[in-house]
Amino acid sequence: MTPDSLLNKRLVGLFLLGVVLFNYPIISLFNLDVFWFGIPALYLYAFAAWFLLIVLVVIITKFNTKNVHLPRSASKPE
């Protein structure tokens, strides 16, 4: 497995996580009439999950580029 395809798989995994986080039923768990830290639970959850997703993308891409050099224009057939 090339590091590149590993990055691919990690990002696809992240995508699936995002799909789960932002869809029924997970989102319905936070659809509550309460406030957390002075902010409605649903809003806080939506923005926090969103931010988490972005942070994970940063971590994954950073981690990847630190170790391998990405192919520029021509990747060799495997």
Partner: peptide, 20 residues
């Protein structure tokens, strides 16, 4: 309320798939 948000969550999800 939160109904405006899906328009921006979609691109975030696409960004993770962007590599692919």
């Amino acid at each position: 309320g939160l109904g405006f948000l899906p328009t921006y969550i979609g691109p975030t999800l696409v960004a993770t798939l962007g590599w692919l």
